[in-house]
Design a protein around this nucleic acid. Structure first.
Length: 417
RNA sequence: GCGGACGUAGCUCAGCUGGUAGAGCGCCAGGUUGUGGUCUUGGAUGUCGCGGGUUCGAGCCCCGUCGUUCGCCCCA
């Protein structure tokens, strides 16, 4: 019989990989807490309209990458491809548009039907932060600072660089886009085949094309700055000043555009050179129209999402596996006593384990294998005297210690190490 | 969705111009009846991803398929 494999683009997370993931998520959650964020947990699937309405009909995410299917009632359901739209939907459905601003942190699986690669899976995991109800550049700067601080807390500060751009407000963006389309039409003969298609569907995307031929033409493409409206220009200036205030350094990259339609003003990416084509590690921007798309009032918002898989791969060291105290009965008759001792240790907050079978030698081998710092050897002759053998597995020393106070003794020794 | 590479033991891999499969690590058992690590002796690894084809004979060649991987598209 052939073993059944995990579905394409999905995988199991255990051991070291699981610890890396957990460390990324816990770090992000903790730092977001310092910034005043609460965690929101929204459903893993939603009414398809939550995404089709918000992401823009032209984006590939909607046109071919969503996991959508009809449920038994005939409604179209979609496994969430990203987090922001659902957060906005939750804001509206819970009436929180009446108590702004809201700061939402989230972590969990997302789903996109695409060709898997390293660091890109059909089920992948993101952490994200959304600040809803603040229109000031100060909010953008603080949100970006949060991302930077999480990366810093993960020890990745030197591996990533922040690239920043403005997309202007709706009018600025429309004017700039028209100019871009005009320019690229003029030089269309020199564009790559892909970019000629993009010119019809999603012209902004030509700007970050990887084709060298495109890059040469992009260099002379009109920049957005002349098209910025006065308010958009002021916003852009204030944002950069505010980032200085938060001590966040960045590089202006006029070619950054965001893939999803709902962004305006601020767009940013933390990128790394270390992951090949999957170099964007944390990215986001301002999306002032999205809450209204969800049926709420016009509400400004700024946020980002980060890929947990990609961050995990960048981590220098996986967090160490936890190790517990090995409780070892000397002989079957001591097992009950050993179980009691083990429960005492657990009650004192210590991780403790006992093998289910094997003689003393076998169980000592296992104690060594699980990386236990100490073995507590429970023998019949000692047990009647209320003592056990406490063996330090690092240096091989062994003491007879009373069961009363054993947990405190071990805890003290562990913290002293 | 498009193009390239790769699938051999639990893991990392070797396997000659086609001749019935190997190493290291790990695992199991003994040397040690109440003491791990080091050492030592022995043992089991497996439909060579799967299906078809060529051949007297296929891990090796051909086709298909599934999976992984590197890029493209897109995107975190």
């Amino acid at each position: 019989m052939q073993p059944i494999q995990p579905a394409r683009g999905t995988r199991d997370l255990l051991g070291e990989e699981q610890r890396r993931h957990a460390h990324v998520i816990e770090t992000a959650r903790r730092v977001a807490g310092l910034y005043g964020y609460d965690e929101w947990v929204t459903p893993i699937f939603e009414d398809t309209r939550v995404f089709s309405r918000s992401l823009g009909e032209t984006s590939d995410v909607v046109s071919k990458e969503m996991y959508s299917f009809p449920d038994r009632g005939g409604d179209s359901i979609t496994l969430r491809p990203e987090g922001t739209a659902a957060i906005c939907r939750a804001l509206v459905t819970n009436g929180l548009t009446q108590s702004l601003p809201q700061k939402a942190f989230y972590a969990g699986p997302m789903f996109r039907y695409e060709r898997p690669q390293k660091g890109r899976y059909r089920q992948f995991h993101q952490v994200g932060a959304e600040l809803i109800g603040a229109a000031e550049p100060l909010a953008d700067a603080e949100t970006i600072a949060l991302g930077r601080d999480i990366l810093r807390a993960l020890g990745l500060e030197n591996d990533v660089a922040l690239e920043l751009n403005t997309l202007g407000d709706a009018q600025s963006r429309a004017d700039w886009r028209a100019a871009l389309v005009g320019y690229f039409h003029e030089v269309a003969d020199g564009l790559s085949e892909e970019s000629r298609k993009r010119l019809e569907r999603n012209p902004l995307r030509i700007l970050d094309s990887k084709s060298p031929a495109d890059q040469a033409l992009v260099a002379d493409a009109p920049l957005i700055e002349p098209f910025l409206s006065e308010p958009a220009r002021v916003f852009w200036d204030q944002l950069r000043a505010a980032l200085d205030g938060f001590g966040v350094s960045f590089r202006h990259n006029p070619r950054i555009v965001r893939g999803l339609d709902y962004y305006s003003h601020t767009a940013f990416e933390f990128v790394t050179e270390k992951l090949g084509a999957q170099g964007t590690v944390l990215a986001g921007g301002r999306y002032d129209g999205l809450v209204a798309d969800m049926g709420g009032p016009q509400t400004p918002a700024i946020g980002w999402a980060a890929g947990v898989e990609r961050l995990s791969m960048l981590l220098d060291h996986a967090p160490a596996a936890p190790s517990g105290i090995a409780v070892v009965p000397a002989g079957d008759a001591a097992e009950a006593m050993a179980a009691q001792v083990m429960q005492t240790l657990r009650a004192a907050g210590l991780r403790a384990e006992m093998a289910y079978r094997g003689n003393l030698k076998k169980r000592m081998e296992r104690a060594n294998r699980i990386g236990a710092p100490f073995a507590v050897i429970v023998g019949e002759s000692e047990a009647v005297r209320g003592v056990v053998q406490l063996k330090n597995l690092a240096d091989g020393t062994q003491d007879e210690v009373p069961i009363v106070g054993l947990a405190a003794r071990i805890a003290g020794a562990c913290s002293a190490r």
